[in-house]
């Protein structure tokens, strides 16, 4: 199991209870939710809430979230939660977010510290000539409460950059699901440029904002904070969720060859059946995860780099363009050309 060093699973206790879970609990209590009902099924007890250093598993956090969403029964929950999670109270790492030189540095910090800032949905930052793109990869349980987590994650990034710039930034937000009824929450918390029914959940911002120098955090203090933050991240016992780890491994392998299950299992230091069991524990399968990687890679190549179908097919190790079109339609419900048209619109 040595290859799975510093990787957390659905049942690894890594989420500090007094951070994001506490933010959700506070939010629910402020709205008059009964604490017993909120904690039902989480295997958490009231007297544990104040225990210093207590950590819960992603599974417990999901259960808490399910309860909170059901009991609060208000579409603003995800947005209010998102408002409260960044920069958080993680010591030096939060300080680094607060004092980032540029937005780019803050977003980099967000992705490297994903295990802290975003343990269930890990952000990925990709740059091209014109834009910086953020999208999210499931770490432990694909698709579960996805909309809630995406709403919260985007709200958190939007609010953080607003705090850094002391003004709203022109983020464009795109969502993979149809427009929900509570559109006013999106307007309020994510600004004006919002689109639904897109191929993936992502937000982007023109590059000049990423490198625009922010005033605070110059000199020795800033350097020290950065060093401390780096040290803190290096000492983390876990840095990646299992599915995120697998995603990155598949993505890297895909650049060289078609990733085969046996090879990937060997690289993870386990048997094929061991990998299967682990995937099943995370409510998914090898094929689903591979398709996810190929889908998101294809979307990036088509949308952000304007690659042709032939080129994308070759890069994904799919025989020919026709085959790729079929796969793509299965993943996204759209033909590649429809996606291109939608993207430019």
């Amino acid at each position: 199991m040595s290859a799975l060093h510093r990787v957390y699973e659905l049942d690894t206790p890594i989420i500090p209870l007094h951070q994001q879970p506490a933010a959700l609990i506070d939010l629910a209590l402020a709205r008059g939710v009964n604490l017993d009902r909120l904690l039902r099924g989480t295997r958490l007890f009231q007297d544990q809430l104040l225990e210093p250093g207590r950590r819960i598993t992603p599974d417990q956090f999901y259960q808490l979230m399910d309860n909170g969403i059901r009991l609060l029964d208000n579409p603003d929950t995800a947005f209010l939660f998102g408002q409260r999670i960044l920069p958080g109270h993680y010591g030096a790492v939060s300080e680094q977010l607060r004092q980032a030189h540029t937005l780019h540095e803050a977003l980099e910090c967000l992705t490297t510290g994903a295990a802290l800032f975003s343990p269930l949905l890990a952000p990925r930052l990709v740059l091209d000539d014109h834009y910086g793109y953020l999208f999210w990869v499931d770490t432990c349980r694909p698709g579960h409460q996805r909309r809630f987590l995406v709403e919260a994650a985007m709200t958190a990034v939007y609010a953080l950059s607003r705090q850094l710039f002391a003004s709203k930034l022109p983020w464009e937000c795109r969502f993979s699901y149809p427009q929900p009824r509570h559109i006013e929450q999106y307007w309020l918390h994510l600004g004006e440029q919002i689109r639904f029914d897109q191929a993936m959940d992502m937000m982007r911002i023109p590059r000049q904002y990423l490198h625009h120098p922010l005033t605070p955090g110059s000199g020795l203090t800033a350097q020290m904070i950065r060093q401390q933050a780096q040290g803190q991240l290096q000492q983390l016992s876990h840095i990646q969720g299992f599915l995120q780890h697998l995603y990155l491994l598949l993505e890297t392998t895909l650049k060289v060859e078609n990733p085969r299950q046996e090879r990937i299992a060997a690289q993870l230091g386990m048997s094929t059946s061991g990998l299967k069991r682990l995937l099943k524990k995370h409510h998914t399968s090898y094929q689903q995860q591979l398709d996810q990687v190929r889908k998101l890679t294809a979307l990036q190549l088509i949308q952000w780099k304007q690659f042709s179908n032939e080129d994308v097919a070759r890069l994904l190790h799919i025989n020919d363009a026709a085959n790729f079109r079929r796969c793509f339609k299965r993943w996204t419900g759209l033909a590649p050309n429809q996606l291109r048209a939608q993207w430019v619109k």
Binding site: F165, A166, S167, L169, E184, W187, E192, Q208
Partner: peptide, 21 residues
């Protein structure tokens, strides 16, 4: 109507610092 209202508000708010960056 809500969409028009929202755009009217966005127009009225137009943060002055946004263009500077």
């Amino acid at each position: 109507l809500m969409e028009r209202l929202h755009l009217a508000l966005a127009h009225a708010k137009q943060p002055p610092r946004l263009q500077r960056a």
